[in-house]
């Protein structure tokens, strides 16, 4: 048995408490303990990193680490949970991850390392114990959080086209990332390259790994900037303009196609290629680049994919035509 079934607002409130407020309280309480114990104890503490037999660092190192990991993690996960207003309620994996990370680094690596800071317990007990505690905290968070009831209705199937016997209907469309977004990412990558070249000239050749991140950005941008979507007698195909990644669902594996109103932030927590738990509790992929009507294609096993194409209604009607012809 997992958590109680409640309405959407209650499930969402509980998710926000578990992902933001409880981790925040844990981080602040951990800081208090670390500062309280650390300031009165040994000035140097055993740490689990660095070289040499004598691996120690000033006691306040742990206070800095807990703050430096804790607050950004809470802000990062909190940001997505706050914006993803429609997706937290049915499967609270995000609060569970927030809780797990917080317990591991604040209680295990932070408080644990300061309290148990003598051989042979340090640094194995705080890290190992923290890991066990973190898994337990994440799992019980996921277990105990209340769920919202799955939506009784999923996407409504489109009307089929009046295709006569022998006729074949085909539809092609595109999903484009907004031009300003492409420019923004390309600009960031260009700035990183310029920065990297400057470092290369001033610091030397050993900074070359700095070019990894702009290269990665540009590859991801090239892969996701445009997707091509086709619908017809062979089923549904979506693929990147580069050819990969590609997803093909034959007409025989299609259960339903229809138009849904999509808000990328609320439904998927962001833009681009996304995965989220849908209202029917099944996972759904999204290639979502703008708010508005999108095409939802549901497979026989209940999983679905949503693409925000223009003229989604026609695409859904074409697919429905070939779903109906199967039966």
């Amino acid at each position: 048995m997992t958590g109680r079934i409640v309405d959407h607002a209650t499930a969402r409130r509980a998710g926000l408490v578990a992902a933001i407020w409880v981790p925040l309280a844990i981080v602040i309480a951990s800081e208090a303990v670390i500062i309280g114990v650390g300031a009165t104890g040994s000035p140097r503490l055993i740490v689990h990193w660095g070289a040499g037999p004598d691996r120690t660092a000033p006691w306040w190192t742990y206070a800095v680490i807990v703050a430096a990991i804790g607050f950004p993690v809470i802000a990062f996960i909190g940001f997505f949970i706050v914006r993803a207003t429609r997706m937290t309620g049915t499967n609270p994996w995000m609060p569970a991850i927030a809780m797990g990370i917080t317990v591991f680094h604040a209680l295990g690596m932070g408080v644990g390392s300061v309290v148990f800071n003598a051989s042979p317990l340090a640094p194995v007990l705080p890290l190992g114990g923290g890991g066990v505690l973190a898994i337990a905290a994440a799992f019980s968070t996921w277990w105990l959080l209340p769920r919202e009831a799955p939506a009784s209705t999923s996407v409504e199937a489109a009307d089929r086209l009046p295709v006569r016997p022998g006729e074949v209907a085909g539809w092609t469309g595109k999903v484009d990332l907004p031009a300003w977004f492409v420019c923004l990412i390309a600009g960031v990558a260009a700035a990183l390259v310029v920065f990297g070249v400057l470092l290369l000239l001033t610091v030397g050749r050993r900074v070359w790994p700095i070019f990894f991140s702009p290269a990665l950005l540009l590859v991801v941008l090239a892969v996701t900037a445009q997707f091509v979507v086709t619908a017809g007698p062979r089923g549904f195909i979506v693929r990147s303009a580069l050819g990969w990644p590609r997803l093909s669902i034959p007409a025989g594996s299609l259960a339903k196609a229809g138009v849904v109103q999509i808000d990328p932030m609320a439904d998927f927590g962001g833009w681009g290629i996304r995965w989220a738990i849908g209202p029917n509790r099944k996972g759904r992929w999204g290639i979502v680049t703008h708010r508005g009507p999108g095409l939802e294609v549901v497979r026989n096993d209940g999983r679905s994919i949503i693409v925000t194409v223009d003229d989604a209604g026609t695409a859904a009607a074409v697919l429905e035509t070939y779903i109906m012809q199967r039966t």
Binding site: L161, V163, G166, E167, V168, A169, G170, W171, V318
Partner: peptide, 9 residues
């Protein structure tokens, strides 16, 4: 773009 054809025509 939507296209309807009849290969039997």
């Amino acid at each position: 773009m939507f296209v309807l054809i009849d290969p039997t025509a």
